[in-house]
């Protein structure tokens, strides 16, 4: 029985995937001690077919592919980490896989969790800024009625 819920892992893997590569690099350089790990599956770039839905709410259809890099690692202690990350940055995928494994190690988790919370807050700040820039362009159209004063 793993010491974490699937929903938690889903969340942190998503934050790691959506982080900018240089943000992951910053987290990586702050890790102490440097984790000892082996590559189970070397970083590999391929394609995932992005699906949409007909009409937005109907049956799926294939919109087009996106580049994705995956990687799997095993820590010296045996814990296995995976990463699936949009784009072609192999360093991003490899580091995200190691961080995924560290999140499963009770001794390492608190520090990594704090780093992931920071990545999450950076993403939230970017989203909030974009959403407020969009909100500044909200408009009310008036329907003009002829002959009215």
């Amino acid at each position: 029985m793993p010491a974490f819920a699937t929903e938690d892992r889903r969340r942190w893997m998503g934050v790691l995937a959506k982080a900018a590569p240089d943000e992951i690099a910053t987290v990586w350089s702050s890790l102490a001690p440097t984790p000892d790990y082996a590559l189970l599956r070397r970083p590999e770039t391929g394609l995932v077919m992005v699906r949409g839905r007909i009409g937005g709410d109907g049956a799926p259809f294939n919109l087009g592919e996106m580049t994705v890099t995956r990687c799997s690692v095993r820590l010296a202690g045996g814990l296995v980490g995976h990463a699936w990350v949009a784009g072609r940055r192999t360093d991003h995928a490899e580091r995200a896989a190691v961080l995924d494994a560290l999140m499963q190690a009770p001794a390492r988790r608190p520090a990594v969790e704090a780093a992931i919370a920071h990545l999450d807050s950076l993403q939230a700040a970017r989203s909030d800024r974009a959403a407020r820039e969009a909100a500044a362009t909200r408009v009310d159209f008036f329907t003009m009625v002829r002959g009215e004063n």
């Binding site: 590999e44 770039t45 391929g46 394609l47 995932v48 077919m49 992005v50 699906r51 949409g52 839905r53 937005g56 709410d57 799926p60 294939n62 919109l63 592919e65 996106m66 580049t67 994705v68 995956r70 699936w84 989203s127 974009a130 959403a131 820039e133 969009a134 362009t137």
Partner: peptide, 22 residues
């Protein structure tokens, strides 16, 4: 794209949950 392997298909994207920019 023909040089890259296909890993699979995504879950259908949810455009109702889109972070709206327009």
């Amino acid at each position: 794209r023909t040089t890259l392997p296909r890993f699979g298909g995504s879950e259908p994207i949810d455009t109702a949950a889109m972070a709206i920019r327009r």
